[in-house]
Design a protein around this nucleic acid. Structure first.
Length: 423
RNA sequence: GUGGGUGUAGCUCAGCUGGUAGAGCGCCAGACUGUGGAUCUGGACGUCGCGGGUUCGAAUCCCGUCACCCACCCCA
């Protein structure tokens, strides 16, 4: 008798991804590799662990992410390390660390991997979540913004996402944003008392967040508040206009959303978000924008940048809702053998087929044919290959099409090419 | 960090006002000893999340606790 031991579960907000779901994850990632490569992006892989200061300096010391959501700990030598809550800071850090700016030109990089934020989990929100993101460093052209969005839209359509909205805004730059904030604060002074409690608080702590309020009664008030896109300086205004006209020229639909305010400090000018229905409250699938000052914040030379990150967990939810891609990993054949004498030839055939890249399964425990055919069916094998005494004697194996029920005899050497013709 | 909901078989869930557990699906076996998907028959499987309390008796009532889910917040 064994003593009962406490089972160990995955920690809160983390989860195991299992087949067949992982097949869908792989296909989404494969599509990202294809699309991004077509736009001439190269993959970057940065450490998951970074010095804490990297995020404090880039994301912003008084953002929610840095203040209360990071997994931060002291290493054995007392250094403060953090599990990355996002990847843009790491990408820029790597860009500077390897002096890529000295190579001239622009750098287009993308990444896929896990991020960590210690929030209360809910639908589409996990403590370990996955992002697929891309960054362009070294260009301040608004047409790069347009191209980034074009690539994003192509990717989403490739994975079967149709119902989405591209929300677009500009948050100005360190020159014009403070001026806007003054205007906004002044405007809020008058209407603040009529707004919800949260907004009254936000009006003090973070006026931009007021714009994001979802309380119905506050909407008419918010409508009348000054919009940042009406207070951009000439350069920012021109940049924004170039982005919108560029999107129009390429037939990309967008919606200017004055309320769209990104939560990270490093954003400048263009910001955007892509939302999808069927996602619950956490409906942002993609967030991104321009961050022209980030390099300097991290001690590098002035280097404009723009990027986005896709919430892969949320994307998968949306893909599943759209039901275009399904989780499936087709099995080409299941090999049924009867009698000890058939096992070795069956194993040889399986090895040959697999070496040809065909997905093939075999069980090594003896089974009655009825049972074995049941297994072939359960595994959804496209073909069952039957090898028994008669087949060994005749040198030809039975190959049964499990979808039609048709069966034919083939010599062992002919099976591989026959199957390959079917896939 | 705050609120609400849910924890019963591998999965989805039923179990009324307390009398110590059920269905469907799945799984195993047989009907059908070299051919799956259909049907029928039989079978295995539960610390009723965990701990405590009330009670002759708790899956059921009470308290606590943990986990998951959803929402707030924030964001991907």
């Amino acid at each position: 008798m064994s003593n009962r031991v406490e089972p160990i579960c995955s920690v809160k907000g983390t989860r195991d991804l299992l087949p067949p779901d992982t097949n869908l994850w792989q296909r989404v990632e494969a599509e990202a590799h294809r699309v991004f490569a077509a736009y001439h992006y190269g993959e970057i892989r940065t450490p998951i662990l970074e010095e804490t200061a990297l995020f404090a300096r880039s994301v912003g010391a008084d953002t929610d992410i840095v203040m209360k959501e990071m997994y931060t700990f002291r290493d054995r030598d007392e250094e403060s390390l953090t599990l990355r809550p996002e990847a843009t800071a790491s990408v820029v850090r790597a860009y500077l660390e390897h002096s890529l700016y000295n190579q001239g030109g622009i750098h287009k990089l993308y990444y896929v991997g896990p991020m960590f934020r210690r929030e209360r989990p809910q639908k589409g929100r996990y403590r370990q979540f996955y992002q697929i993101g891309a960054e362009v460093l070294g260009s301040q052209s608004p047409l790069v913004d347009v191209e980034v969005l074009e690539m994003l839209v192509l990717f989403l359509e490739r994975v079967g996402i149709r119902e989405y909205q591209l929300l677009l805004n500009s948050v100005g730059c360190p020159k014009c944003r403070p001026e806007y904030l003054d205007v906004l604060r002044q405007a809020l002074e008058n209407v603040k008392p009529t707004m919800c409690a949260d907004c009254q608080r936000r009006a003090e702590t973070n006026p931009l967040r007021v714009l994001d309020c979802k309380v119905e009664a506050d909407q008419p008030i918010i409508e009348k508040l000054p919009k940042i896109i009406d207070h951009l300086d000439p350069e920012c205004r021109q940049h924004f206009d170039c982005v919108t006209s560029g999107l129009q020229a390429r037939g990309l639909a967008y919606q200017v959303t004055p309320r769209l305010v990104r939560g990270l400090d490093y954003y400048t000018r263009t910001t955007f978000e892509i939302t999808s229905g069927a996602l619950g409250a956490q409906n942002a699938v993609v967030g991104g924008g321009r961050y022209d000052g980030l390099s300097e914040m991290l001690g590098g030379p002035p280097t404009p940048g723009i990027g986005f990150s896709i919430g892969q967990d949320r994307l998968i939810l949306a893909v599943q809702a759209a039901a275009v891609l399904k989780s499936e990993a087709p099995l080409a054949a299941y090999v049924v053998w009867m009698g000890e004498a058939a096992l070795a030839p069956a194993s040889r055939l399986v090895r040959e087929l697999r070496a040809q890249g065909l997905s093939v399964e075999i069980d090594y425990d003896p089974m009655k044919i009825k049972k074995a055919m049941g297994v072939a069916n359960k595994l959804q094998a496209r073909f069952a290959i039957i090898i028994g005494e008669g087949e060994l004697a005749g040198g030809r194996y039975q190959v049964k099409d499990m979808t039609t029920g048709e069966q034919q005899e083939l010599s062992p050497g002919a099976i591989a090419s026959f199957l390959k013709g079917k896939f």
